[in-house]
Design a binder for these strands. Structure first.
Length: 312
DNA sequence: AATCCTTACAACCGCGTTGCG
DNA sequence: TCGCAACGCGGTTGTAAGGAT
C-alpha cells in the first residue's frame, strides 16, 4: 500500500507512532473530536481515518487476528438473515468484532460459497483445477458477494410455502456455516433437527469451543427464509439437478425431502444491549441445546475429498 | 524456485444521518 | 428552517501472506 499525500493528508497503513498519538488523544478526550486531531496538527490524517483506525484496530478488547469461530459464524448468518447487511448492528452481537470484521468475514464466506456452487456447475470438476474453475464463472466473484445481501426490507419477506425443493435446498446452504456444509460426517434429517454422526471420541475431542457466547444464553429465533433478488438469481442456477453432487454425502437426497435448516437461530443479545428491538423478533425463545453443544470447531480439518457413500 | 491464485484484512470512499449555530 | 461539519455505516479496493501448481 502506498502512502499518498494530498494536501498534507496522509493515507495508507498506520505507523506505530501514529497509533500512539491517536491513543493519547483518546485517553485525553475520549473517542470523539476526531477532526481536531488533524486541526491540532497531531496527525496528518482525516478525522474519518482516525475514527476508523480506533474503531477497527485500537479499541480495547478487540479480537484482532482471531478467526471467527463456528458459533460466531452462525450468529452472523442468522443475524444477516434477520437484519440484512447491517454490519454495525450485527457486530454489536459479537463481542470483540467490528462491523468491518463482520463485513469482511461475510464477503469471504460469500465468495467461498459462490465458488462451491460454481464448481458444482462444472460437472463436478475437482476444485484442484483452479484455472478451469475460474474460466467457468457464471457469476462473477464481485456479484457472488451479493448473493445473500438482502436488505432489511427484503429480509422481511418470507419464503413462499410453495417453494421448490431447490429453493429450500439453496436456502439451507446459504444459512448453514460452510464448515457444516463441507463436513461429510454431518447429516441433516427431519424437520428442524440436525445431528452429527460423530463417535463419542470425536465429540470429546471437539468439545473445546471457541465460542465467546455461551449458546445456552442465546435465545432461538424463528427462522424466516428470505429471498433477495440476488438470491433469486442464484436460485435459478440451482435448478440444475446435479447441483448437490459436489457435496459428496451431503447430496440432494439428504438435503431435500423437507429437511430444514438447523437454524434454531435466533436473535442474540447485542453486546451491552437490553434487548430493545431484538425482543420484538423473538416469539419463541426455545433453547436448542443439543445441536451446538456438540459442534466440532475443527471441522475443516476433517474435510476430505468427495466420497460416495459406497466408498466409505 | 517461480508463478499464480485465494484469502484475509486494512483502509478508503461515498452517502446518509445527526447535531448545532 | 437552513446550511454546515462531524460522525457513522456500507460498499469497494488494494495488498500482503500463504498455499497450490
Amino acid at each position: 500500500m502506498e502512502v499518498k499525500r494530498d494536501e498534507g493528508i496522509r493515507k495508507g497503513p498506520w505507523k506505530a507512532e501514529e497509533d500512539e498519538v491517536l491513543l493519547n488523544h483518546v485517553k485525553k478526550y475520549g473517542p470523539r473530536d476526531w477532526s481536531s486531531i488533524r486541526s491540532k496538527g497531531l496527525l496528518q490524517r482525516t478525522g474519518k481515518s482516525c475514527r476508523l483506525r480506533w474503531v477497527n484496530k485500537l479499541r480495547p478488547n478487540l479480537k484482532n487476528g482471531c478467526k471467527f469461530s463456528v458459533e460466531e459464524e452462525r450468529v452472523v448468518i442468522e443475524l444477516q438473515a434477520q437484519f440484512g447487511n447491517k454490519w454495525a448492528r450485527i457486530a454489536t452481537y459479537l463481542p470483540g468484532r467490528t462491523d468491518n470484521d463482520v463485513k469482511n468475514f461475510w464477503s469471504s464466506r460469500q465468495k467461498r460459497l459462490a465458488r462451491i456452487l460454481q464448481t458444482s456447475g462444472t460437472a463436478n470438476k475437482p476444485q484442484k483445477n483452479k484455472r478451469a474453475v475460474q474460466t467457468c464463472h457464471d457469476v462473477p466473484a464481485s456479484q457472488a458477494a451479493k448473493f445473500s445481501s438482502s436488505s432489511e426490507g427484503e429480509s422481511s419477506s418470507k419464503a413462499q410455502s410453495g417453494s421448490s425443493s431447490c429453493i429450500e435446498n439453496y436456502e439451507m446452504i446459504k444459512m448453514v456455516p460452510l464448515t457444516d456444509l463441507l463436513n461429510p460426517k454431518l447429516v441433516y434429517f427431519g424437520k428442524d433437527l440436525a445431528h452429527h454422526e460423530l463417535s463419542q471420541d470425536e465429540k470429546n475431542s471437539c468439545t473445546e469451543s471457541q465460542s465467546q457466547i455461551p449458546f445456552s444464553e442465546i435465545p432461538q429465533p424463528k427462522p424466516e427464509l428470505t429471498f433477495s433478488p440476488e438470491s433469486q438469481e442464484l436460485l435459478a442456477k440451482l435448478e440444475d439437478p446435479n447441483i448437490f453432487d459436489m457435496f459428496g454425502t451431503l447430496d440432494a437426497c439428504e438435503l431435500g425431502n423437507g429437511a430444514q435448516l438447523p437454524i434454531g437461530a435466533q436473535l442474540f443479545e447485542p453486546v451491552g444491549s437490553c434487548r430493545s428491538d431484538a425482543k420484538e423478533n423473538i416469539d419463541d425463545p426455545i433453547t436448542p441445546d443439543s445441536f451446538f453443544d456438540d459442534f466440532p470447531t475443527d471441522v475443516f480439518d476433517h474435510i476430505e475429498p468427495h466420497q460416495s457413500p459406497s466408498e466409505r
